[in-house]
Structures are given as structure tokens and as C-alpha cells.
Design a protein around this nucleic acid. Sequence first.
RNA 1: GCCUGGGUGGCGGAACUGGUAGACGCAAGGGACUUAAAAUCCCUCGGGUGUAUGCCUGUGCGGGUUCGACUCCCGCCCCAGGCACCA
Length: 825
Amino acid sequence: MTPDNEISYDFAAIEKKWQQRWHHRQSFKVNNQDEAPKYYLLEMFPYPSGRIHMGHVRNYTIGDVIARYKRMRGFNVMHPMGWDAFGLPAENAAIKQNTHPAKWTFENIDYMRGQLQRMGFSYDWDREIATCSPDYYRWEQQFFIDLYKKGLIYRKNTTVNWCEDCQTVLANEQVIDGACWRCDNKVIPKEMNGWFFRITAYAEELLTDLDKLSGWPEKVVTMQRHWLGKSVGAEINFPIENSSEELRVFTTRPDTIFGATFMSIAPEHPLALKLSQNGPHEKEVRDFIARTRVARQRADYGEEPEKEGAFTGAYCINPYNGRKLPIYTANFVLMEYGSGAVMAVPAHDQRDYEFAGKYNIPRLQVIEAASGKMPEDQAYEGPGTLINSGEFSGMQSGEAKAAITGYALEKGFGKPKTTFRLRDWGISRQRYWGTPIPMLECKKCGIQPVSKAELPVKLPTDVKFEQAGKSPLHTLASFYQTTCPVCGGQARRETDTMDTFVESSWYYARYTNPQYDKGMIDKEAASYWLPVDQYIGGVEHAILHLLYSRFFTRAMRDLGYIDIDEPFTNLLTQGMVIKDGAKMSKSKGNVVDPSILIEKYGADTVRLFSLFAAPPDRDLEWSDKGVDGASRFLNKVYRFVHRNLDLLTADTVSEKTNETSRALERKIHQTIKKFSRDIENDFHFNTCISSVMELVNTLLSSNNLKGAETVDPAICRMAVETVVKLLYPMVPHFCAELWETLGHTDLLDTLSWPQFDPETAKEDELTIVIQVRGKVRSRLQAAVGTADEQLKDMAVNDEKIKKFIGDTTIKKIIVVKDRLVNIVI
RNA sequence: GCCUGGGUGGCGGAACUGGUAGACGCAAGGGACUUAAAAUCCCUCGGGUGUAUGCCUGUGCGGGUUCGACUCCCGCCCCAGGCACCA
């Protein structure tokens, strides 16, 4: 027989047993008609890269705890899972292994689904989605056409971010520190034609509604606010001397307009070359533009290049004072922002200041700081009183902005203008493994959407991946040759596919009825389940995915598919999993494989440790020893239950109420109270677990007192059952098994969250701290609610305190009820 | 440079609205059990000190407010993440 202290629970058998039972009972399947309040819990779905990693384990464990907790609290919880299944790695693997991306992807999905099931996550697998399936992306194509018809999608030629390694275009949001978000290779600018989502049409709404997102981390809201980058100012037209053309600029500082001493335009600006053409400066400007283009391709994102430019030889006229302003083209002016031209006010803009210094352009002060102090060798960018500004002199910056803009409006050469930093979302990708863009080009009728009857435009399967980095679609005639839906003539299909961020921008809505075959969204299901009550994922998606999803939600709303504004009411951004001080990565060789851990310790132990080691929003330092500790704790509980099973399942109602029993009972109620508070308050599972550990410690030490009858068996049982209930969301197999062992036939899944009694939770005696001048000098025991006067007396008469004070006069005594007495001498 | 977070034992982390700093766990040391080891159980565990039921010191650094500050205010340093010529 195994000695008692060597009992360790058979997690493999127990976990298998309960996973099968949940599966057969369809425990986590939900529908819309439930009486209970709905709760839509969602974790960001994974890319099926092959195997789950620790980041997934952590993310999905956090989610599963919330799902199970909310069920125990009586909510109708929808907890779906699926696959963000389009993307480059599949294509690369296909080339390398001479297989097809679909095969690779679906094999990965099968494997990873098995891993997630092995973790015991309570998903409603009937709602599973794979975005690479035509049943999914056909609706995306239909939606694309809807958006196109509504003018929310257009095609244009621009300079794009090109990743040479991935052979594709990237959106601005997908460029991180000048490198590709996926492969980390340097991004270069490239002139290209592509499709754009008019996300800027929603810029204002996306910004103002950020205020509604009280359930989001402030950090994420701030990041989005910066990304949207709203600037309020004016648009002013400057006539160009000896020309019918005008130069239009955007400025946030119309109050400094009298200080403009030159103009600067982007090298890509169409006027840059035109103005210098056939003049003495043409060569200089040409050289400069060429040089800048090369420099930008090699742009070292670590530091800003020195400001430089070239004079075009042309002048424009400041419409406010008639001053002649030389027009320069300058390397720090961006074509993509505003109008690609800037009025330069060297006295009040640091960039212009530096540029003016280099080219000996005068600086003209037009703003006087309230303090009267102007910086010595840099621009003064703050507000102040206008000087040297004609009729506007004497005004404050604020009123001057309005007055000067108003003047332009009145005279017809300008108007108030708001500009956003946000640009439209370019979604064309020159790759195979993505949703085909449902458009075609007819020689006669131009660009046309594919007719809806023809959807989905399926990805052809008879493709060869011969040339690394080249999409086979571009050369596959059977794919691109098609007929025009308008005239029936010959047409060429679009061979680019969509950015994979498109699929993840609406999957949360599709989950509400993923099998729906009459449209993109089943409106009834969507109006029941949406918005997502709690969304969980990595903070790295703070801008990309979360901003796109907010945009898509509004677009779907405006097309009548859904009736919400914001997709995710509450957002939890979980921290990274760290090992040896660095993010787990193959290159650092510090990766921990969850499967190995599950095999060695079981899913529950892995879950418990990843919850216990840190609060969810912080980085988690992985520790193999810590996992041992979690395993030890579970075994300790398991052993206790089995060792005392007779006592715990006895039918006797004990009348014994000694102090040990009362203390244990009190601890039970205190634990429920603290646990419930901590889980509700930002999901602080780590402190929840430590409070249960405390309860277990109390329980064990109560029973270890010699003379086994000291503790009331009924209270012991209550303690054990409380532990089992509280831990159920975290270590569900373990708790389900113990619950059964304790003789229960019902399940813990629904409406079983324990309640606490505030009266029982109250201590009847407390340690009161006695301080002298704020320093702890003694302690005393007193009943809860002891009157201030009485506490004062007790404190003053305390032996140690008496010794301490001697015959010094007491100036004041401060009493904090049930906590402390502070004697001031 | 700007915007967010964050600096607490050897380590991960606790500390409710200003009221016993270091809960819980890990590691370490000592002990019990054992032929031995593992497992389990018990004790110690911020630093200092003359071993004390004592005292001093201690939450990145320097000031301040307060009877009392990890917590609030001012100034700095460091770390992580985000943005980075946005006119």
C-alpha cells in the first residue's frame, strides 16, 4: 500500500475523465434563448502556427477562469474559439515542405485544437471558425463589395511600405520601428497600386467614442488617441508669384502666420519639380529629390536625419501681409500628411528654426510669451500675445487663431480645418494565402465588383509554389481570366488578396451564429450576444486589431448588419510570458513547451501556476520551481480530502463549537469575501489563490492539533467544499473530481458560487497597534468595536508604553477604530 | 524628445479609501521521519546590533504635507512598452 504521504493524484486519468464528461454532456454549448443574463467572453483567436505556446496557455487560462466563474454566478456564457487561419507562414511552409497551405493549416488546427482541449478550456466548440474556409471569407467578400458600393473602399496609387522579405505591402500600423511586424525585416517605400478601406471616414467617431471605453485600459485608449492624432487648425492658400497656382498648407498655428518667412513642401509634392522647371534651380531640386528618396529608403529609424532642402526658385505671397516667401522643398515635410506643404515660421517652430538657420532665412518673432522670456537658441512654440501681426497684434494666441482663420474664410483664401494622423487602411497583399479581393477589371467597363451570385471567389487549389515569395495567383490564368458581370466581355480578376487583419476585424460578430448561411451576420443572434462583454488578448494589438475592429463594427452597423457602436465593452490586456528576464523566443532558446508540462504535471497545475505567478495584466516570469509549488499545493488538498474522507462524508451534525472551529469558520467566510472581491476587481487571480492557500493552511493546522476531535467535522467539510468551489474555475478537473469524491452528484458549473455571511466573517477580537509618535511600540488585544476612550486607557496603561513615555506629557492621542492608537508626545 | 506603466527581501509578488510593510508562493538554511534518498511534516528567513518581550534602519534618490506616507505633493534617477520630423 502506498504510504499516505505519498499519495499524489492521478491527474492524467482525472483530467481525461472530466474532459470526456464535459464533452458528452455538451456542458459549454450555449444558445440565445436562455433566461439568464448573457455574457460574451472572448479571447483573441490564435494563428494556427503549429503548436500552442505559453502565451496562449496564459491568455486562454485567464479567459477560461472568467468563463467558468461567470457560469457559476449564473450567466449564460458564450465562450467561442477559432482560428485566424490566413497568413504568410502557411505559404512559406508550403514552399518549404512542398505541400499546400490549406493542408498545413488544417493539420495545425487539428493538432492545436487537441492541445486546447487537453487544457480543459470550456469552449463551445460548435462555434469554431477557421477564417480560411470559404464559408467564412465569402461573407468578407460580400461585405467588401457592400463597402465598395458605399464608397468606403477605393483604389489608389501611393507610396506604400514594402517588405522585401514577405514580398508584400504593409499598412502603416503594421510597420514597427521601420520594420515588418511579422518578419522584422526593414520596410522600404515603394510606389504601388492597391485597395484602401476608408477608415478615415470614421476618424472623428473613433476618437470621440474612446471616451466610452471605460472598461479598457487607459494605456490602450491613449495609444489609439495618439494614433488617430486629431489636429485642429486652418487650411490657407498662398498664391504663387507669377503663376495661377496656389500652395495650400495646413497649420495648427494660424496665430503665427505673420511670422512665416518661407514655405516648405514635400519632395514628392507635384509642385516641387514643376516650380523649379526651366529655372536656375532645377538641377539642384532634382538632385535633392533623388537624394532624399534614396535616403528615405535607407532611413535609419533610430534618429532623424539632418534637415535639408533646396530652393525651388519660386515665391508665394502671404495673403495676410503680402510678404514674399521663398518656396523650398524640404526633407522633413511629409506628402502624406495635411497637404504636403507647410508654412514655415522659424521663430515659433523648432524644425523651421533649424532649417532657417541652415539656409540663412530670417526669423521673425510674432508671439510674446506671457512670462516675457523667450528661449535663446531655439524656437518658442508656446502660446502668447501676438506682435508684429498687423490688426491682430495684441490678441492672445487662442482668439487670434479664430480671428485669423475667420479672416481667411471671409476673404475666401482659407478655412478652418481638422486633420488626422490616421491614414486609410491599405489592404492589398501580393500573396496567395488570403481572402481573394472580389473585384475585376474589364477593358470596357473598368473596375467592377464580382457579382454576388458568383461568391465566394475561392482560392484555387491547383497552384504551385515554385518561386519563393511570389504569389501563384498573379500568373494563374485560370484564376484571373474571367468575364465582366456588366458587359460579359473579357476581364481580369484582381490577383491580390486581403490583409489578414480583415478577417479578425469581424470574427467576434460571426461567432454569434457561425453557421448562418443567409448572410454575414445573423442579426438576431448578434443583437442578443453583442457586444463582447470581456475581451482578452495581448497588448501588442492595442492599435492594429483593436482599431480595425472598432472601424469594422461601425461599418457593419452602417450597413445594417448589427446595431452596436463598440465591439468590446471590457478589455484585458495580459502581459507577456517571460523566462530568464526575456520574452520567450526560439532565438533566445528560453521557450517552455506547454505540452511537456501538461504531461508532467497535468493541465490543472499549469493553469494554477500561470494564474498564481502574477496578476493578468503584468508580465509573468516563468519558473519551473514555481510549477512544482502549484503541484504540491494541489496534492496537499487532495491528500487531506482522502485522508479524512470518513470524517468529511459522515452524516453527523456536530454541535461542537470550540474556538478552533469558530476560527476556521470565520476564515472560510473571510476567504469567500476576499476571493470574490479580488476576482471581480480586475481579475486578480494571484491574490485569490493565495487567500485559498491561507484557508487550506488554516484547515490543515486546525486538524493537526493533537486530538482529532478538536474541529467540528461539519465545518471541516464546509472548508473543503469552499476550497473546491472557489478553485473550480481555475483547476476545474481537480475540483470536479473532489466534488464527486465528497459525495456530490451535481456539477459545479452553474449557480454554485459560495456566499459569505458578513457576521461570521467578522473577527471578534483584534490586535490593536499602539504607536508612540507614529512608531509601533506595543500591541494589545481588544474586542471589535471597543470604544475610543477605552482603547486610549488601555494604551496609556500598557506596560511597555508606560515605560516608553515615562513622565513626558502626552500632547494628543489619535484613535483609529479597530486599528490603532497613536500617542503623540 | 513626448506619452503610458513600473521601481517593495535572494526571487515571483501582497498591503482595502494615508493606519502593524513583506500576505501567499519559490529558493535557501536547520531539524524530524528514513539504512539512504525522494516524498512529507516542523522551525528560521529584509538589513544591522551587545541575542533583546529591546533598539536602530528599511518600499529607486532628495525634499515636503501629516499624529502617522509603499500610498498624497514637488524635484530628480533608472527600467519596460508605445509614438517619433504629423506642420
